[in-house]
Write a protein that binds this DNA or RNA. Sequence first.
DNA 1: CCGGCATAGTTCAAATTTGAATTACTATTA
DNA 2: TAATAGTAATTCAAATTTGAACTATGCCGG
Lengths: 153, 153
Amino acid sequence: MEAVKWLDEDEMRAWHAFLAAGSLIDRLLDAQLKEATGLSHPQYEILVRLADAPDGELRMTELADTLLTSKSGLTYQVTQLEKAGLVARRSCPSDVRGVLAVLTEAGRQRLEQAAPGHVALVRELLIDVLSPGQLAVLADALGEVSRRAAART
Amino acid sequence: MEAVKWLDEDEMRAWHAFLAAGSLIDRLLDAQLKEATGLSHPQYEILVRLADAPDGELRMTELADTLLTSKSGLTYQVTQLEKAGLVARRSCPSDVRGVLAVLTEAGRQRLEQAAPGHVALVRELLIDVLSPGQLAVLADALGEVSRRAAART
DNA sequence: CCGGCATAGTTCAAATTTGAATTACTATTA
DNA sequence: TAATAGTAATTCAAATTTGAACTATGCCGG
């Protein structure tokens, strides 16, 4: 029987705020994106990664790593985006097993159309709510947190 | 046509860290809970709210408000918990339409069994990674963020 | 070159989540 | 008090997510 170190009041406040902020924001962003562009938040994130990548293409596995979804979840979403004509698949030259997801021109346009409203809401919900100092602490602190969490995956 | 205020590098870092930390931690907590106790994270949260409430019972709507799930999602999860014998439903005395979810003795025991491992992981992933100062800033900052986000719901 | 093992991506069934009805009741107002 | 609007919870079908096979390749030591 080990002694459990429960959370004190401040720790509990931080933990609850973290949890609540995470899901509330995610939910609102998803709703805004769907409403304005028909994309879900996961789909939007896929398009962003592809747009940032050289030639607008990435291996499925690379995508799955940076996104926080399972491999099968990614397969599903990429298929949806493919049906919508926003992404195409092509086989990887260096590895026959590999598949590259490529951003199409329509995909790039949809992303450009979606980005302003999305960014505006991110500002409104998170960035502009915080002082520059808070923002810096948050970036450092949560950067370290996510590095460690990612290491356990 | 409005000028879009894009995110600068620091803002982007904060935003990405926030997103990544949120989903990584949620995923790890869910895995730990399932592995150790068979509860999902949403289910665990339901038990916690009930345990904190007077008489271990809450209206469905009250539960749905503090949790970050839809009403139908809550109905589903409470049904699962009911099947497992951890929660019971009883009708609300003051409003015939209402339903009270009540924590059973088995539910309380399961929660007590689950809590230490859960809290330990929350510490390991978040609380103990941060300095007290960072923790305080995080609580303040994200507290305000979630208050505002909740106001938009 | 071969066997054994790791990897890439998909498929499949099952679990979950969602939002839009639906049902049944409460509250308000004229 | 009858009509109307609002609320509580559930049900339903559809979309998504998950993890566990599964298929097909790559890679490495002997």
